[in-house]
């Protein structure tokens, strides 16, 4: 989550490990190999298998599952998932950036308090926060009740189980994940640089686009990854806010393992998803290392 930047273990006193150093580290490495690397390898292997009529996996080598990924039905769903995740990311940047910037510019005492106010939703289960919106958006919910009470509408508007509801749920869930990393960059930004831009005749717009944005870019990209990647595969929020109306790639993957019982196809979708994730990371890291 927020621990994207891992401190480089550059300890000058570090020595070469002897036998005990290796023996003690072995369980940790074994754990990661057994429960991260090996499952990914098996997932990759499964994606080339087929299944019999009972849904059991039959070992073979076929590219059929990957062919199915490019079926127009699934391509549409994949496109929709990426589209929703992209819109969510853009909205989170647009809504969250001014907030992160404002918090970073406050005196320390106020800053710490405001930061706490971001941390609370950050750590509150997204499930509960999504559930809260059901109470507001459903037909007999708070918003329809209020609109009817005021007399703006006579019959409840169908707000829940719409694409807009899905978008609200996603933005609401991921907004704190965007604010925190941007805050991290904005806080480090030296005010003198902004003042220098003003003194050199840059208007607020130019100072923003040529000084502030480039210097807070690491925070923006970290936030984008934290929002975009999980948002593509999220099926719980889309289930709760969209009902069955707006299936996403996450819902399709989940279905392959339970209802449709087609694990090989689900595995192929998972592999494609992983490749997209790796690609997104590589792109961001290349950009980051180039600007450095």
């Amino acid at each position: 989550m927020q621990a994207l930047a891992i401190p480089d273990a550059e300890n000058l006193h570090a020595r070469r490990p002897r036998l005990w150093g290796w023996v003690l580290l072995a369980p940790l490495v074994a754990w990661l190999v057994a429960f991260v690397v090996v499952p990914m390898v098996i997932l990759f292997g499964y994606s080339f298998c087929t299944r019999d009529d009972l849904g059991r996996v039959v070992f073979s080598f076929t590219l059929e599952n990957y062919g199915r990924v490019f079926d127009p039905i699934y391509l549409r769903i994949l496109g929709r998932s990426i589209g929703f995740a992209a819109v969510t990311t853009v909205l989170c940047v647009a809504i969250g950036y001014p907030v992160a910037w404002y918090i970073a510019r406050q005196p320390e005492r106020i800053r710490d308090k405001l930061l706490l106010l971001v941390m609370i939703p950050f750590w509150t289960s997204f499930l509960i926060r999504t559930y809260a919106w059901i109470a507001i958006l459903k037909n007999e919910g708070l918003l329809n009740g209020m609109l009817q009470y005021v007399g703006l509408i006579s019959a409840p508007l169908p707000l829940l189980y719409t694409p807009a509801a899905v978008l609200i749920g996603l933005v609401y869930a991921y907004l704190p994940f965007m604010i925190l990393p941007i805050y991290g960059s904005a806080e480090k930004l030296d005010n003198a640089l902004v003042e220098a831009a003003h003194d050199l005749g840059a208007g607020p717009m130019r100072a923003f686009s040529e000084v502030i944005i480039p210097l807070t870019w690491p925070g923006i990209t970290a936030g984008m990854l934290l929002v975009f990647v999980p948002a593509i595969g999220m099926f719980a929020i889309t289930d709760l806010m969209g009902g069955a109306q707006v299936p996403m790639i996450g819902n399709v993957i989940q279905n392959q393992f339970f209802r449709a019982r087609n694990a090989p196809f689900g595995a192929a979708l998972g592999v494609v998803f992983t490749l997209m994730f790796v690609l997104a990371y590589a792109l961001v890291h290349r950009r980051a290392s180039r600007t450095r």
Partner: peptide, 30 residues
């Protein structure tokens, strides 16, 4: 251990440790 010793594959191990933190939950689940 990673702080005290300089392992031959320290960097690779460090990367491997980061994977479960950033990997999409659904991929980890399936």
């Amino acid at each position: 251990l990673l702080h005290r010793y300089r392992y031959r594959f320290s960097h690779a191990i460090q990367t491997l440790i980061a994977v479960p933190m950033i990997m999409p939950e659904i991929v980890m689940g399936i």
